[in-house]
Nucleic acid binder design. Structure first.
Lengths: 111, 111
DNA sequence: TTGACATAACACCATTTGGTTATATATAAT
DNA sequence: ATTATATATAACCAAATGGTGTTATGTCAA
């Protein structure tokens, strides 16, 4: 029962521009490693490493089809990010509200 | 006119757990470097590095007050992340919809 | 002015990261 | 069976990252 230490989480996975590009490409259509790699200037091996990191974070999944391995976006794993963001959006909106208040009451402050 | 190459963007800034913790602490209240650092096991110097990265990404800002430097959350900078996420949520919901469709039409498939 | 305190600036280090090339394995097609 | 294609795996490397400790610098208080 290997404890399966997940080395990469969603936050780390999306930190790299190449990995975000992979997600974007897969959002357009499911595709093989070769097809994905064709959109990058870096080596196929390098792209595969990014793919593995994304898969480890649960953001994509791949299944072998003949000699190809077709990858698919798994966007549900972004929920963790969404929840994290939602917490901070609360403060974001509060701040905007406060700003709005200050502006609307500007003349009152010029006593 | 130094081109001010921004080394850290929002995606990278939030990738590190310590930095997310700094954001969380600042969401609670504005505070000095010393106070922030008191919540970590790592050295003050290390915390300062994280703070600088967050500031560079525009997620926080600090102003000198006497001998202290008080930092404040700048949540508007999370908009970039929010927009990025919104794009993928579209696929997320589509997928859930598709799944719902399959379930609801399950008996039809058992021909 | 001396001491205490908060932050800033350095120099240094181990590990991780993002990349490379080379080699092996599995599947398809001739 | 042979060859071409797609992916997998391994060994390697430079640079970035996250951490350390030490040494300035600025500010408040006695």
């Amino acid at each position: 029962m290997n404890a399966e230490q997940q080395k990469y989480d969603v936050f780390q996975a999306i930190a790299d521009p190449s990995r975000r590009k992979v997600l974007q490409l897969l959002s357009n259509k499911n595709q093989s490693i070769a097809e994905l790699a064709s959109h990058f200037d870096i080596s196929r091996t390098a792209v595969v490493k990014h793919i593995n990191i994304l898969a480890e974070a649960g953001l994509i999944s791949g299944k072998k089809q003949g000699k190809e391995k077709i990858y698919e976006l798994q966007p549900e794993s972004l929920k963790e990010l969404k929840d994290w963001l939602a917490y901070f959006e609360q403060f974001w909106h509060n701040k905007l509200t406060k700003f709005k208040y200050v502006v609307e009451n500007d003349t009152l402050n010029n006593k």
